[in-house]
């Protein structure tokens, strides 16, 4: 183990770019599919009280399976393919995404939902035009955690050959050469920060009503505060579980 070899970086820009793109091609679909699965499940969990515990419990159980074991278990099904990596990560995003989506739907003010129904909206329209937009801040908090988590977890899939920047870890480890490992860590970190920033921007654009809050927080301070704390609570809770997960790796 030696110090960082700075000369390595300019020589490997091409490799690093390719691996970064590879990394994203695993992490991004994982979050996307996670959301596609989580949203309907969250809606069911939100509407049908009896299934709520079952759905949240099941996603928790899946989360506790060590990630490495997961990829190995998936191998007979999906083989040594990119799908294995994506599938594994998708399942990991579920716990965060389902929980936050349910909490998001819970946070929708009852009077808004009720007004929508009473105005004559059918259930699907109420869901799409009132409940989901109002749940968006909490759901997005979950998406951000899931995204950052996926980006850091991709490296585990390097065990089956689809680790993105994680390949740099294996490479460095096998050659007892620190520089690629450091490069991998820095790039993963950078990627996670950029993705998170991008999502913050997307959320800002999608929730124009939340922007003017600070300007005129005169009459509705209590209500605003309530939504804020629930958002914050939802963000912190899953991220702690995500950190614990790091040990499983």
């Amino acid at each position: 183990m030696t110090a960082v070899d700075w000369g390595w970086f300019p020589e490997h820009i091409g490799d690093m770019t390719a691996l970064t793109l590879d990394h994203l091609s695993i992490a991004v679909p994982a979050v996307f599919f996670g959301l596609v699965i989580a949203l309907p499940l969250a809606v069911v969990a939100h509407r049908v009280r009896r299934l709520r515990g079952l759905i949240l419990g099941a996603s928790n159980v899946l989360f506790t399976i060590p990630s490495l074991a997961f990829f190995i278990l998936l191998l007979p099904v999906t083989g040594l393919t990119r799908s294995t990596a994506v599938t594994g990560l998708t399942i990991y995003t579920l716990v965060v995404l389902i929980r936050n989506s349910v909490e998001g739907l819970d946070s929708v003010p009852a009077h808004a939902r009720e007004a929508s129904v009473a105005m004559g909206s059918r259930p699907l329209r109420t869901l799409l035009t009132v409940e989901l937009p109002l749940a968006l801040p909490v759901i997005m908090a979950g998406v951000r955690v899931a995204t950052v988590m996926s980006i850091s977890l991709v490296s585990v899939a390097s065990y089956i050959g689809y680790g993105g920047l994680g390949q740099l870890f294996t490479d460095g480890f096998q050659r007892s050469y620190t520089t690629p490992v450091i490069a991998g860590v820095l790039l993963t970190l950078l990627l996670a920060l950029l993705a998170d920033g991008l999502l913050v921007g997307v959320q800002y654009l999608c929730t124009p009503w939340a922007r003017s809050r600070t300007r005129t927080a005169r009459t509705k301070t209590s209500r605003t505060r309530r939504t804020r704390t629930s958002t914050a609570g939802a963000t912190t809770a899953p991220s702690t579980t995500a950190t614990t997960q790091g040990k499983g790796v």
Binding site: H111, A112, E114, A115, M119, G120, V130, W209
Partner: peptide, 16 residues
């Protein structure tokens, strides 16, 4: 419901 106006307490407006 579309043919009946409905006003609820605390307005029930859509915040978004």
């Amino acid at each position: 419901r579309r043919s009946i106006g409905y006003v609820i307490q605390q307005s029930g407006l859509f915040p978004h």
